[in-house]
Amino acid sequence: DESNKPILLPNESQSFERSVQLLDQIPSYDTHKIAVLYVGEGQSNSELAILSNEHGSYRYTEFLTGLGRLIELKDCQPDKVYLGGLDVCGEDGQFTYCWHDDIMQAVFHIATLMPTKDVDKHRCDKKRHLGNDFVSIVYNDSGEDFKLGTIKGQFNFVHVIVTPLDYECNLVSLQCRKDMEGLVDTSVAKIVSDRNLPFVARQMALHANMASQVHHSRSNPTDIYPSKWIARLRHIKRLRQRICEEAAYSNPSLPLVHPPSHSKAPAQTPAEPTPGYEVGQRKRLISSVEDFTE
């Protein structure tokens, strides 16, 4: 099969070098950035008060330690540790928490760990991170309901609301924008112990962030949302095809390698009803078989 044979790379090609550099910018793992907010007593309706908090309760602090690993920003190499735009020179604080497994990295933009500057009256330095995160974990210690939209931002799609209760338990629920209701189930609340709260809140936030990324990708319907490693695979396959075309153009005697095509017509299947918005969006999480067989 010609399409699977190794090909020689061009010795000097600026377009090839640019493509390789672009490939280096696509990590081999999925990345997520999640905002974390603490809401104190009497702050449920005040964005400024929430963003001005420099610490929270003892249970909130224990919750943070379970979310991930504490890292010092100045020691991080952005090409190895995903920071979601946090500055490593102290502009966004000294520490944050991050978490990773074999296929993804997540960083938490924690408002109480970011510096509260006197010259920044409206807390814009914090909002440029927190307001651009799709998902926020809100530790609501106010005793009042927290409403979506209290923290203004164009991309605040989903809130994971943590409400501490007695007996070391917590109520965990989801809020989302109306255009996200087909992807996020907000109907079920959970009672979770303090011990298990970081794991549950983190998983709910990661799932909500993946759904938000799919939702946000609708602005470019021709580019369905893939995982990062599938995006790398697609980029490599496009690069291979372009090299083959350039080689055939410079030397017409060489065969032009095309991806294999299936001449056999697909079997006719009964027509199915058109899937609704929710089903269609969830299918976009699934990769096409052509990603692996071309």
Rank of each mutant, 00 (worst) to 15 (best):
P10T: 12
Y58D: 03
R240Q: 14
D101Y: 00
F199H: 02
H109T: 03
Q281A: 14
K152W: 09
N132R: 14
V138M: 01
D133E: 06
F157W: 15
K127D: 05
H159W: 15
N4S: 14
V160M: 01
S227A: 07
A49W: 01
D185Q: 05
L256H: 14
Q203Y: 02
L64Q: 01
T96V: 13
C176T: 07
K152Q: 15
S136T: 13
T31C: 14
V289G: 14
E168A: 07
H215M: 14
R123T: 14
S15E: 14
H109E: 07
Y58G: 07
P275W: 07
S173L: 04
G90Y: 05
N53D: 02
Y29T: 05
V192H: 01
G149S: 12
L285S: 12
I161D: 02
L70E: 05
P252R: 09
A231F: 04
L174P: 00
Y249C: 14
E246V: 07
I286S: 15
E54S: 07
T269I: 10
Y167S: 04
T31V: 07
A267R: 07
P270C: 06
S46Q: 05
L70N: 07
D24V: 01
D102Y: 04
M114E: 04
P115C: 05
K80G: 09
E72G: 07
A248K: 09
E2Y: 08
I137F: 01
V184T: 04
E62G: 04
F157R: 06
S57D: 01
S173V: 08
T150A: 05
Y249W: 10
D87G: 09
K121M: 12
P6G: 10
L8P: 15
Y139M: 00
Y225K: 10
S3F: 05
L86N: 15
Q154P: 15
G56C: 02
P221H: 06
K127V: 10
S136Q: 04
R282C: 10
Q213V: 06
F155T: 08
L197A: 13
M204S: 04
G153N: 09
T150D: 03
R128Q: 11
L73A: 14
I71D: 11
H215E: 11
Y29S: 06
L165R: 02
D166Q: 07
S28K: 07
I26K: 07
V188Q: 07
G84F: 03
D75F: 11
I243R: 06
K33S: 13
F95P: 07
V192I: 13
P266E: 12
H32D: 01
Q43P: 01
D24G: 04
Q154Y: 12
V289F: 08
G85I: 03
Y249P: 06
L73Y: 13
I50Q: 02
K237H: 13
F199Q: 03
G149E: 14
Y167P: 02
F63P: 00
S28F: 12
R284Y: 09
T65Y: 06
S212Q: 03
H235E: 15
E72Q: 12
V257M: 12
T186W: 03
V39Y: 02
V279M: 11
A35K: 03
D223H: 06
F16L: 13
V135D: 00
R238S: 15
S13R: 07
F95R: 04
V184R: 02
Q43M: 02
T274K: 08
T186K: 06
S288I: 06
V119S: 12
L256F: 11
V158C: 09
P27I: 04
E246W: 07
I151Q: 03
D194C: 00
C98P: 03
K74N: 12
D92W: 06
M180R: 02
Q77I: 09
E12S: 06
G93P: 14
L130H: 04
Q175Y: 03
G143P: 01
L285K: 05
N170I: 00
R232W: 06
Y225E: 14
Q77D: 14
H216A: 07
D133C: 07
S15C: 13
D141L: 00
A211G: 02
L48D: 13
K127W: 09
S13T: 09
L37M: 03
G280N: 08
Q241H: 11
V36N: 00
K283E: 15
Y60C: 00
V138F: 01
L64H: 01
V279G: 15
F95S: 04
V88T: 14
Y139R: 00
V289C: 11
H262P: 15
K74P: 09
V289M: 09
T112V: 01
G56L: 01
I26T: 09
I151G: 03
A247K: 06
K127R: 15
G153S: 10
Y277F: 12
W99C: 03
I7T: 08
V279Y: 08
S261D: 14
W99E: 04
P226C: 05
K228V: 07
L148T: 15
H159G: 15
L239S: 08
D1F: 14
E246I: 04
F16G: 05
S212F: 04
N220I: 06
N140T: 00
N196R: 03
V279H: 12
Y249Q: 09
Q21D: 10
L233N: 12
N209T: 13
A271C: 09
D120K: 09
S173D: 04
T112E: 02
E91D: 09
T96I: 10
V200M: 07
D223S: 08
F108Y: 04
L130Y: 04
I151D: 03
N132H: 14
G93I: 09
C98E: 15
C169P: 01
V20C: 11
H258L: 14
V119F: 12
V39E: 00
S253G: 13
E47N: 02
L130Q: 04
H55T: 09
R128C: 05
F95V: 05
E245W: 14
E246T: 06
T112S: 03
M210R: 01
D1V: 12
L285V: 14
K190A: 15
N209F: 02
A111E: 03
H122L: 12
W229Y: 05
L67M: 02
V135Y: 00
K126A: 06
T96M: 09
Y225P: 10
K147A: 10
F63Y: 00
L130S: 05
V36A: 01
Y97I: 15
I243N: 07
V214Y: 14
N45F: 03
N53V: 01
A208D: 01
P78N: 12
L51T: 03
Y38N: 00
H216R: 05
P164C: 01
A111H: 03
P198K: 00
V20N: 06
D1E: 12
A211Y: 09
Y60E: 00
Q213K: 12
Y277R: 15
F108G: 02
F292K: 15
E245R: 10
T116G: 07
V257D: 15
I103M: 15
L70I: 06
K126C: 04
G85D: 12
V214Q: 08
L67F: 01
D75C: 05
P78A: 12
Q268C: 13
K178E: 09
F108K: 01
D92Y: 07
H215P: 01
F292L: 14
Q241P: 11
E47I: 01
P260V: 09
P260C: 12
P273Q: 08
H55V: 12
L73Q: 15
P10I: 13
P164M: 00
K152V: 06
I103S: 06
P266V: 11
